[in-house]
């Protein structure tokens, strides 16, 4: 399969009242009590360990699943573990209207596709996207479609350094052999 194409089952991060959760911070994603962990394999079971209503996520998530979150995802600390825990779970991509700057670059550098989804509030209000739906999108063009129900959506296409790093695998692979660009 073309690596630019991603397909997977959605997990839409809603709160108990059914609203999309915004400003999810890195302590909710991967709590600071576990910061001393440096082995990626140990990080998966701790993902969303402090996010109310979603602490059972690691048990539910299957490889290739796609997370949909509210704006400013990954606020807070610089911990790479908040990205690596999803890589450990083999999460296929994260879609959110915006990310914290540090979280975004950490994900880019680790090769985890983090994409800005446009018009998320409308898509959710019109029930165009829901947990359990299977979606398919192209990271390069930003065009996406829902395979479970008739709906399309748009992502801010990956470009520039982000795309180059994504294609290389991660920042280190991208940087070799010259060690720079």
């Amino acid at each position: 399969m073309d690596t630019d194409i991603r397909q997977g089952r959605l997990w839409v991060l809603l709160d108990a009242a059914g609203r999309i959760i915004e400003d999810i911070d890195t302590d909710q994603i991967f709590h600071n009590a576990h910061l001393a962990i440096s082995d990626i394999a140990q990080m998966g079971p701790l993902a969303f360990g402090n996010l109310e209503g979603w602490t059972d996520f690691p048990g539910k998530c299957a490889p290739g699943d796609i997370i949909v979150a509210g704006r400013n995802f990954g606020a807070g600390s610089s911990r790479q573990q908040a990205v690596d825990c999803f890589i450990a779970l083999k999460v296929g991509a994260i879609l959110a209207p915006s990310y914290s700057a540090i979280y975004f670059r950490n994900a880019v550098n680790s090769g985890l596709p983090v994409l800005k989804i446009l018009d998320l509030d409308r898509l959710l209000a019109q029930r165009k996207l829901a947990s359990g739906d299977v979606v398919r999108f192209d990271v390069r063009t930003g065009k996406g479609g829902n395979l479970t129900r008739p709906a399309v959506f748009a992502l801010d296409p990956m470009g520039g350094v982000q795309y180059d790093i994504f294609r290389a695998g991660d920042l280190f692979k991208y940087g070799k052999p010259a060690g720079t660009k």
Binding site: S77, S78, R79, Q80, V83, A101, I102, R105, N106, N109, S110, V161, D170, L171, F172, G175, G179, T180, K181
Partner: peptide, 22 residues
Amino acid sequence: QGMGDVDIAFAFKTGRAWFEVP
């Protein structure tokens, strides 16, 4: 700027980082 451990390892080695000018 705060960055994650991938960025910083790369910065240790190269003395550089990519950045989107805000």
